[in-house]
Simulated assay, not measured.
Amino acid sequence: MLTNLERLKRVLPKELYDPSQDDRLELDIAAASAAIENYCKRSFKKQLYTERVSGYETSKYINLRNYPVHSITEFSNAWEYEILDDGRIYCANGWPTGEHNIKVSYIGGYVLPGDATNEEPRTLPEPLELACLLYVQMLQRDPGIKSERVGNINVTYIDDDLGGRLPAPVVALISPYVGRWV
């Protein structure tokens, strides 16, 4: 998950936090994390991934989905290559041509807040965690109310249904991390 319950408790307004709702908050964190990863078309957790990609002699690059790439553990067509930023792998001579003909297993992604240790501290970019925290806070509010006022009781309802889309502030934070190669 892109954040954890402890961090959420520290940023959640006191009036929205109820200790008896910890299980629901964990579910909201999981749902917000999944929605963000789905929007970005990639996973962020540092782990082993395997992908099949198409090679083209005319292209010197193949692109992997779950960057940053830390190491490659298996390459089906072992060519000399160089790992570049953003999940790109470079081969000076180009890649063998074919549809899904290259199998790559690699360690990619970020160390998430819940997986961090002293030996391997978190590496998840702060905007991704902030987007998750913000989205969870939005899930805690009544989704039909846009604004409210207590004096003379004034409530404004949302007239624009998001239709399953992420809220604009969340999208603004995560846009730089959308998988560009898929």
Rank of each mutant, 00 (worst) to 15 (best):
Y81K: 04
V53H: 03
N93H: 04
D161A: 11
S54T: 10
I83C: 06
L64K: 09
Y49H: 11
I145C: 01
S147E: 07
R65V: 10
E57H: 15
G114W: 02
K46E: 14
P125H: 08
I83E: 02
L84K: 13
I107H: 12
G109D: 00
K60G: 08
L124F: 11
E119L: 14
W95Q: 01
P127L: 10
G108Q: 03
F44I: 05
H70K: 13
G98V: 07
I158H: 12
N118D: 15
E148T: 15
E57V: 14
T73G: 08
A92W: 09
N63E: 14
A92H: 09
V136A: 05
N63M: 14
Q47W: 13
F75P: 03
D160Y: 06
P96N: 12
I102P: 00
N154L: 11
T117W: 08
L166E: 11
G144P: 00
L166N: 13
F75Y: 10
V150Q: 08
Y135D: 07
Y110R: 01
L134G: 10
G114Q: 07
G144V: 00
G98Y: 03
S71F: 11
L64R: 08
P127R: 10
Q137R: 11
Y49S: 10
S43V: 07
D86M: 13
D142Y: 03
R88Y: 10
S59V: 03
L112A: 07
R88H: 09
E82C: 05
V69W: 07
T73E: 14
Q137T: 06
Y67A: 14
L84D: 03
V111Y: 00
D115F: 04
S43H: 12
S54E: 04
N152Y: 07
Y110H: 04
G108F: 02
L112S: 02
R52T: 10
S71K: 15
K103D: 03
N77L: 15
